[in-house]
Design a protein around this nucleic acid. Structure first.
Lengths: 132, 132
DNA sequence: TCCTGTAAATTACAAATGTAATCCGTGCAA
DNA sequence: TTGCACGGATTACATTTGTAATTTACAGGA
């Protein structure tokens, strides 16, 4: 009964990110927001919006003669889905080799390292709780 | 001058994984290996192999009347490319929020935690070296 | 009142992808 | 020797994706 999330394409992710950030937006606002990062024509962006509606990733209410779009799926769940599917594809679902590559070849920022520490601690704590 | 790696599709990744594991293989061997995990027809798998050759991800030498295929691109580099492109797409290139989701919702194995620790230590060491 | 600028809906079209089937050549079993 | 089974090459075909243009409908200004 797991993931029946709509499959969101690369370009569509950019649109979703904007809408998750804004919480709700007209297509003009979405176009505006994306014009900073992409050179897509407004038409293109509207196409993407339309597809996302059809996929069930966005919903809208009419506001005068335009629509006010809003996410129909939860950001975090989509991220987790995408993460799983990436890990499955490239690392057979295992986080460790992904991290190993990162450790070897990428430079982690201090912030990232702090997050890693937090995860380690959190886990250690959980484990402590569980075995006594 | 960065990533001009061939873009490897989802299904193609499965094929690449087999060949990276075996180091070299005939198509029959690839089909055999994949029949465990997928229900693709041999024809389908041969199509994928052909596309990977065309993309420059595989190369081959003739061995009697069949080909012996072998990776033409490095596994680790492909993994890193794929990791970057995933992080860009879903997390704007940032590792931290990816890890945060993981920490919150997934259960990390002991092995994974050990890897995390190793990364943290490695980084701390590097940092130490660099600032004195 | 009529024109025009926009928004949404519909249509377009090539490339990539999933998923094969058909064609062609040949070494091997009968 | 002959036909077939199997490998590679070519072709097929629907769907998804990137990237838009065209069409339709209307609200607001000239």
């Amino acid at each position: 009964m797991s993931s029946q999330f709509p499959k969101i394409s690369d370009a569509e992710w950019s649109v979703m990110r904007v809408i998750w950030d804004l919480e709700e937006a007209t297509s003009a606002e979405i176009v505006e927001a994306l014009s900073a990062d992409t050179d897509w024509k407004p038409r293109t962006i509207r196409t993407l919006i339309g597809r996302l509606v059809k996929k069930g990733a966005l919903e809208y209410t009419e506001q005068g003669r335009e629509y006010l779009y809003r996410p129909a799926i939860e950001e975090k769940l989509c991220e987790i889905e995408a993460s799983k599917s990436f890990l499955d594809r490239v690392f057979q679902g295992r986080l460790t080799p992904f991290l190993a590559n990162f450790a070897d070849t990428q430079t982690c920022s201090d912030e990232e390292i702090a997050e890693l520490k937090r995860i380690v601690e959190m886990h250690e704590e959980r484990k402590g709780n569980q075995e006594k």
